[in-house]
Simulated scan of single mutants.
Amino acid sequence: MRQIVLDTETTGLDPASGDRVIEVAAIELFNFVPTGGTFHKLVDPERDIPAEATRVHGFTADMLRGKPRFADIADELLDFLGEAEIVAHNAPFDFGFLDAELARAGRPTLDRGRMVDSLDIAKRRYPGLPNSLDALCRRLGVDNSMRTSHNALLDVKLLAEVFLALMGGKQPGLELASGPARRGGAAAAEEAPIIRTPRPIVPSEEELAAHAAFVAKKLKEAVWLQPPFAEPPEPAS
């Protein structure tokens, strides 16, 4: 299963009032394991950035002037997203902004059936508790000490760790596979599967007798010696 963990930064809170996306970051997961695939772009919003927004994410209009416009990165973003589920914290916010930008660029909007809201998952798991990204990092033991502002690239890395913890995700290297490891390329196809020969442990007659004596001495009415577990007595000859 392929999923994309995504985060955006914007000039404000409402795309309907003209606010724009200024940063998009995404990380690829496969079967709840990060693959190393990433997408990250800074975007020229083609407008000013209010001071209150700058205080949140640290970006000014001057810093982003000359960066690609969203229309310039739209196709690359859609290619990276593919048909995967898209995980975001307060996902309707990110989907709303991306849909507005995609529509402005003449591209198809995102299917809401692909949306996975990690905030909704956290609220169901921890009802009544704070479920911001910072709160979840503290609760789930994810190190967010470097997070001094809302930066999409950092936030999406933290969110991926939080999401995997929320979902009981697997850690790389702990998967059991019946064939070659998923590494991609010709090398993976040429790898032979690991075959392990069963090595059954069969007790000797002496060991069985010693165990029976121990049970008879230490345990009274052992469950496995009582009907219906006990073997029926052999018929008399």
Rank of each mutant, 00 (worst) to 15 (best):
M1T: 03
M1K: 01
I4H: 00
V5K: 07
L6I: 02
L6N: 01
T8I: 10
G12N: 07
L13S: 04
S17A: 11
R20E: 09
A25Y: 00
A26K: 02
L29N: 08
P34T: 07
G36N: 01
G36Q: 06
G36W: 05
K41S: 07
K41F: 01
K41R: 14
V43Y: 03
P45Q: 05
E46R: 15
I49N: 02
E52C: 14
M63L: 15
R65P: 10
R69K: 15
L77D: 02
L78T: 11
L78Y: 10
D79C: 13
L81H: 08
E83N: 14
V87G: 08
A88Q: 05
A91C: 02
F93T: 03
G96K: 03
L98R: 09
D99R: 09
D99N: 13
L102P: 04
R107C: 04
K123H: 14
K123M: 12
R125A: 15
P127K: 09
P130W: 03
A135N: 06
L136G: 05
G141F: 03
D143V: 03
M146V: 08
N151S: 10
L154A: 09
K157Q: 11
K157A: 07
L158Q: 03
L159I: 02
Q171R: 14
Q171G: 13
E175F: 02
L176G: 07
A177G: 06
A181K: 15
R182V: 15
G184Y: 08
A186P: 01
A189M: 15
A192G: 00
A192S: 10
P193Y: 03
R196Y: 10
T197K: 15
R199Q: 13
R199F: 11
S204W: 11
E206A: 15
E207T: 12
A209H: 08
H211N: 14
A213C: 09
K217F: 08
A222E: 11
A222V: 13
V223E: 10
Q226N: 02
P228C: 12
E231F: 08
P232Q: 04
P232E: 07
P233Y: 05
A236M: 15
